[in-house]
Amino acid sequence: MTAEVTRDCTADEPDRDVDLEDDSGAVIAAVGRQIRLWREAAGMRAAELGAAIGYGENQIYKVETGKRIPKPEFLDKVDEVLGAGGKLAAMKKDVAEARYPKKVRDLARLEAEAVELGAYGNHNMHGLLQTEEYARALYEMRRPSFSRDQVDRYVAGRMARQEILQRQPLTTLTFVQEEVTIKRPLGGRAVARRQLEHLLGIGQLRNVEIQVMPTDREDHAGMGGQLQLLKFEDGRAVAHWEGQLSNRLTSDPKEVRIIELRYGIIRAQALTPRESLAFIEKALGET
């Protein structure tokens, strides 16, 4: 990590399956070439490989030409069918990192290095707390609309980031969620119910504390919007926050201190973790 990170980037700019001007494009193209070489060495046509693993011929060609990011299960199946002995499956980690959209890749890498992460969310569940179907619902309701492939890529990237929840050594994670994010049935009531069940499960982890900020609070330090604070083993810290059309990621000490101050007050104003889990259980019963 560099000594200072200060970056503004577009939050909802449409993205292709693979941005070939980004370093992720080179990774995906290299993986695709390896799959093609192994397929040709095995004497199989693309249609035959697709039939063997349950994919269409066009999907195989898209992966081989670097136009589609392969899912982990795709690499596992291809590795087995082509007899690659684990060489293709071993690329899953590289592909997982390339799944992150360019605008969030720096944040994801910082999350992977953090020993402590704190986040306040005011309009939807934090990405590290989301179920896959809840995340998909969020991306599908974006305007202007994302394509199906774009939604798949964003969801896959978000799910990959959640490795931080149980990574060893454990990262200390704290979240404060506005009451509305608990009660708003985004994606429909069935999706919302499973999201609350998932949230309760995460809240039982030893390294995770979840708090709810009640709507009836008369004093609230989070009026500036959602935020995230990451701390590292060497004592450095990075702050991140989002607006309608931009993300900001900074390690400027003055700005980090402001975010740290606000987050500390937000936590003090919210329900305690135990009270919050009881609140979520009650909301689940009403969903």
Rank of each mutant, 00 (worst) to 15 (best):
A47Y: 12
E242C: 06
A96T: 05
V5W: 10
E111Y: 03
G43V: 02
V104P: 00
D252W: 07
G56L: 00
P72N: 09
A283Q: 11
E116K: 14
A98Q: 04
T2C: 08
R167L: 05
A51H: 15
W38E: 05
G85W: 13
G243A: 14
L75F: 14
Q177Y: 06
L49C: 14
T131Y: 03
V115D: 11
M159H: 03
G56E: 09
D219Q: 15
D106A: 15
Q130T: 02
A51L: 15
A47T: 12
R267C: 10
G25N: 03
I280D: 02
E116V: 02
I53H: 06
V176D: 08
V81L: 11
A29S: 15
Y61Q: 10
F175S: 02
R99V: 00
P101V: 03
I69N: 00
G222T: 02
D79E: 11
Y263Q: 08
P72A: 07
D76T: 06
I28L: 03
E116N: 09
A90I: 01
M1H: 09
V18Q: 04
V31R: 05
R36G: 08
Y134D: 00
I210Q: 05
T181C: 10
Y263N: 13
D12A: 09
P14L: 04
I53D: 13
E233G: 04
V63Y: 04
D76G: 06
V5N: 11
T10D: 09
V208G: 02
E21W: 14
Q244F: 12
A119H: 06
H198A: 07
E80K: 14
E255K: 15
Y154S: 09
Y134F: 04
A190M: 14
L200F: 08
A112G: 07
L230Q: 09
L107T: 01
H220M: 09
I53K: 10
H220T: 04
E73T: 10
E218T: 14
A3W: 14
E209V: 01
G188S: 03
E116G: 07
R7V: 02
R206H: 14
A41W: 07
E275N: 01
M1L: 09
L49V: 09
A278S: 13
T272F: 07
N247A: 08
L107H: 03
R189C: 03
D219I: 10
I265E: 15
A96G: 14
R16Q: 10
M125T: 07
L205H: 11
D76I: 00
R109Q: 07
A137K: 07
M159F: 01
I265P: 10
R189H: 10
R158Q: 07
S246P: 03
R257T: 11
G118K: 12
R158P: 00
S24D: 11
E111C: 09
A26K: 13
R236T: 04
Q130K: 06
S24H: 09
A30Q: 04
E111M: 06
K102D: 02
G222Q: 03
L249W: 08
N122P: 07
Q226P: 14
F232M: 02
I60H: 13
Q34R: 12
V151G: 10
H198Y: 13
R68H: 12
H123P: 01
K254S: 10
E13V: 00
